[in-house]
C-alpha cells in the first residue's frame, strides 16, 4: 500500500481562518442576500456547511439540505461522467415559489442558493458567478 494512500487527508485538505470566513460571509451577504436571494450556503463535497447566510425569513433544515445537496451534486456529476461529459454546468430546480441553484466553486466547494420569483435566473447566475470569483480569491 504505502504512498498511494494519503491519510493526513483524513482531516480537511483546506483550512479557513476567521478572517477568510468573514470575507466569505461578506460576499454571501453583499452579492447574494442583498440582491434578493433568500438563503445561501457554501458547503463542501462531503456535505459540511462552511458558511451560510439568509434574509432572516428562512427556517430551513440546513444540515439536511447540505447533505442532500452534496449527494445530489455528486450523483449528477457521476451521471455526467457516465455519458461522457466532464460536467453538467447548470444545476437548477424550479419550484412554485422557491428555486434552488447549485454551482461548483472549485473541486471542494459548492454554492447553494435558494431564491424566489423576485430574482430572475439570469440575474442569479450573474450574481453567483461574481460571488464565486470573489470566494476563490479569498484563498
Amino acid at each position: 500500500m504505502g504512498s498511494e494512500y494519503d491519510d493526513s487527508a483524513t482531516f480537511s485538505e483546506y483550512t479557513l481562518g476567521p478572517e477568510q470566513l468573514d470575507s466569505i460571509e461578506r460576499v454571501l451577504q453583499n452579492d447574494l442576500i442583498d440582491s434578493g436571494v433568500h438563503s445561501v450556503m457554501l458547503i463542501d463535497m462531503a456535505g459540511n456547511i462552511i458558511a451560510q447566510n439568509d434574509n432572516g425569513q428562512c427556517d430551513h433544515d440546513l444540515y439536511s439540505l447540505a447533505a442532500l445537496a452534496s449527494a445530489n451534486f455528486a450523483a449528477v456529476d457521476t451521471m455526467a461522467k457516465i455519458v461522457g461529459e466532464e460536467e453538467f454546468s447548470l444545476l437548477f430546480h424550479k419550484g412554485e415559489s422557491e428555486n434552488i441553484h447549485f454551482s461548483k466553486v472549485n473541486p471542494e466547494f459548492l454554492l447553494i442558493t435558494i431564491f424566489g420569483k423576485d430574482v430572475t435566473l439570469g440575474l442569479l447566475r450573474l450574481k453567483v458567478a461574481e460571488a464565486i470569483k470573489k470566494i476563490n480569491e479569498v484563498w
Binding site: T10, G17, N48
Partner: peptide, 15 residues
C-alpha cells in the same frame, strides 16, 4: 474530512 470552523468553534464530522 471534518470541517473545523475556528470562528464559530464548531466541528462537523461525517460518520
Amino acid at each position: 474530512m471534518a470541517f473545523v470552523n475556528m470562528k464559530t468553534k464548531e466541528v462537523q464530522a461525517k460518520i
